[in-house]
């Protein structure tokens, strides 16, 4: 029984856990731990279709589709992808350029700049610098634009799923 108790403990700790996620198992009925672990998504088996909601339960699929098409969610998604996708393209291109430059233009990479520093070392330090810079910009973007809105939408969605 110890396991069951600890499971109940964290289940109760997190408010607004959507019961409808588990193929319509009501929140009050003790959910079998394995049912929840094997089915983070509705339907542990092979059924690809969304689970049929039990009578009285909210249709989770409807809620998710409604939230997905809402303006608030569109803004969160835009704020995430608008930064993350271009930034990923940028750093991957910059890294591949750096990598291919070693193979394609070794002479250019050997050119001396100042003291023992050559182009290759400058680009290497540039990779460190760009990694730190992008990390900082991404963190700031997420903190100022996305975090609060995402948290509000999370509680809102979980309320609608209850």
């Amino acid at each position: 029984m110890a396991q069951q108790q600890s499971f109940d403990w964290w289940d109760g700790r997190l408010p607004g856990r959507p019961a409808a996620l588990w193929a319509g198992v009501p929140a009050q009925a003790t959910p079998s731990p394995s049912a929840s672990s094997a089915a983070a998504a509705a339907g542990a088996g092979d059924a690809p279709a969304p689970a049929v909601p039990a009578p009285g339960a909210v249709d989770a699929a409807e809620v998710y589709r409604a939230v997905q098409s809402s303006e608030a969610f569109a803004r969160i998604r835009r704020d995430h992808r608008g930064f993350a996708l271009p930034a990923t393209a940028l750093f991957l291109t910059w890294y591949l350029f750096y990598l291919v430059a070693q193979a394609a233009a070794p002479e250019l990479m050997r050119r001396q700049l100042a003291g023992p520093l050559n182009v290759a070392w400058l680009l290497a330090l540039g990779q460190f610098a760009s990694t730190f810079l992008l990390t900082w910009r991404y963190a700031r973007n997420a903190r100022t634009k996305r975090d609060r809105a995402a948290l509000e939408l999370r509680w809102d969605t979980q309320d609608r799923l209850r």
Partner: peptide, 23 residues
């Protein structure tokens, strides 16, 4: 043969970006 289920993708998008239903 089976197309992607838009409802399941909606769940994935909403959950992954907002944390709704996350443990």
């Amino acid at each position: 043969r089976e197309p992607a289920d838009p409802a399941r993708f909606a769940e994935m998008e909403v959950r992954s970006l907002t944390g709704a239903g996350a443990v």
